[in-house]
Design a protein around this nucleic acid. Structure first.
Lengths: 358, 358
DNA sequence: CGGTTTTATGTAATCCATTACATTGCGTTG
DNA sequence: CAACGCAATGTAATGGATTACATAAAACCG
């Protein structure tokens, strides 16, 4: 029982002679196009890559044929030869999080300006998936990776690996990163609340595995200290960045009977959850409790009341990340850089002086 | 003046003899691995592709070498040879829209189960970008495309093109699609409002270029007719799906002095904008105006009041889309199919009987 | 006008993995 | 024990484009 495999045959190589080919048949190769345009494959390739170096007549003839047959060079073959794909993979834990949307916009803008394409991968914070995407770089399916979480996938590519960290960073990692000054940002938020007259300020922290969350917590501590307010550890509750976490955190604070007149949340989503939990307990915002978020996502403007928040320069974060990536690809010897941007307080309706002072 | 170009040399082919190679050097090829493991390239390839057909000893030896040197086959070369990438590009107009997030989850689940990877492209409804991504398929950089908008990019690949439309569809297009029964869904929403006692029901329509929006409008008309309510064309306002559009639409309705006790919005985001516009005019929801949305995005549960909406089976839409794609790739002769799912009414706090009846 | 550039194009090597087909050696079977 | 089948491995063709190098033709120059 031989002859079982019915793989692609290959005796059809010569079928490309008909200059008049009426039907725009299947899919084409340089070879065929070359034959039809009566030039060599090299000339076809040149006409497409660097049109200026082929004579005008030839160039036009080739372009006409290319167009007529809808020829698109096989990117696999090209990439194999040139060892570059002009493709960047951007990895984010959760596309559902509106914070990332604008960062990605920034990434794409710069990518586009430089002839790169961006493809997005959602990892759901799953190590296996992170690695799977990272392997695409190792397999030369993409030129580089921009990650938006605080883990560094292993890319076995001896030496420099084309990786940039956006929004987060990894301590002591020698990886280029862009992020905001989270210590300063958190401190600014707290300063603002203190300025309004608050002294009992609760803090909904993000996952403690993330350096930026530690930084925010450090900023919180710093600002309290500066204001001479003693730290009450019970006023800090840890959660992930989700709405649900915000909801749960507030419930747990209230269940413990902690009293606080302001709440600083590590993300806008947490703030949304917190607001929901507070109002469902009959507390009014900002009358009874002021709430301040972090990120300034699109929806924050539309909560009721609209959310006061620390706005991250999302677009700039993305742009800068991609810029770094391009530099890194241009010169792999380039030493890793960290770029720290500033967050900005956006005051909306969810904050006010505490009741006692009014 | 020869010797000027300093391109990659290739005299180093033999440099791979040292079985004891201490430093996990650069990047490797089958050839090198084969040399080190003292087998042919074919055997290395086989050991990786179909381990069961090489003898256990050889297999283990090869695997050991592969591991030791961190060898990852070059995907470009492989894909070139095998003419498949196991990569699907999913295109969405706007990652910012939380509706798509869950659809994508569904897509990725099925992809993963079938050994495919998904990469996302955001087109911002820009024709050029849509086409750029579509070209990746033409260039054989991806096996297929799932689009989540109502336009069909041209993929010059003579004959069947590996394209599936999710959430939207294109009329008479012979393209496989999955979407909800928008006529029925809209009618259900209106029926519900009518059932509550509403008669003056305004409608925030989506972009009229989109067939699904026409369908929703048709459902609105149908249900009104069924209820014996005459259509007041001035109660329909067109917008895109955005929050801002919802806000503007309501403002324009109110500016025209139209009175209505209920509002059916073509997306939850529009509903959020509408609610904002209504409350800022001093109207209470649902006391003065009932609002119902469409999609059931994550945030709808957290608006105040929580939003009543027509929930799309987002995950199922994604799963089904990817399933179709896989079938299509397996058998390109497969005729295009349309699969229509049902949306489901989710009642929350933004709807109530009209004031008059209470 | 011979010689040197420059310009346009062609030939063939190359990128790296997969796999059809060939080869070798061994166990079965009549 | 010859003949055959199967298992394990090797050799080399293949996929499609890019590009170094070679060549031919035209342009330039003193």
């Amino acid at each position: 029982m031989a002859k079982d495999k019915k793989r692609h045959d290959r005796k059809d190589a010569e079928a490309a002679r008909s200059d008049v080919a009426p039907q725009p048949a299947r899919v084409h190769t340089v070879k065929e196009i070359a034959a039809i345009a009566k030039v060599s494959v090299a000339t076809v390739s040149r006409a497409l890559q660097r049109p200026e170096i082929v004579s005008p007549e030839t160039r036009e003839r080739i372009q006409e044929v290319v167009k007529r047959f809808g020829y698109t060079p096989n990117a696999m073959a090209r990439n194999l030869r040139t060892a570059r794909t002009r493709l960047i993979v951007a990895l984010l834990p959760d596309i559902t999080n509106p914070f990332f949307s604008e960062v990605i916009r920034g990434i794409e803008q710069v990518a586009y300006e430089n002839g790169y394409s961006v493809l997005l991968g959602e990892t759901q914070s799953n190590l296996v998936r992170e690695q799977a995407y990272a392997d695409m770089v190792a397999a030369r399916q993409a030129d580089g990776i921009i990650t938006m979480f605080h883990r560094v996938p292993a890319i076995p590519m001896g030496g420099r690996l084309p990786l940039v960290n956006a929004c987060e960073y990894v301590k002591d990692s020698g990886i280029s990163s862009v992020y905001v000054d989270n210590v300063a940002a958190a401190a600014t938020a707290i300063d603002y609340l203190v300025g309004l007259g608050h002294r009992d300020i609760a803090f909904l922290a993000g996952p403690s595995s993330s350096p930026i969350c530690e930084d925010r917590e450090a900023g919180y501590h710093l600002a309290l200290k500066r204001a001479g307010i003693p730290l009450d550890a019970a006023l800090t509750v840890v959660g992930d960045f989700s709405i649900e976490a915000g909801e749960r955190a507030v419930e747990s604070l209230l269940a413990q009977g902690k009293s606080f007149s302001a709440l600083f949340c590590s993300s806008d989503e947490m703030a949304m959850g917190a607001m929901r939990a507070l109002t469902s307990r009959g507390l009014r915002i900002p009358d009874d409790v002021s709430v301040i978020g972090f990120d300034d996502i699109r929806f924050s403007r539309y909560t009721s009341p609209p959310l006061t928040t620390m706005a991250q320069p999302k677009n700039a974060l993305g742009r800068e990340a991609m810029t770094m990536m391009i530099e890194l690809l241009a010169d792999p010897e380039e030493p890793p850089r960290k770029r720290v941007l500033a967050a900005e307080l956006v005051v909306r309706g969810s904050t006010a002086p505490p009741k006692a002072l009014r």
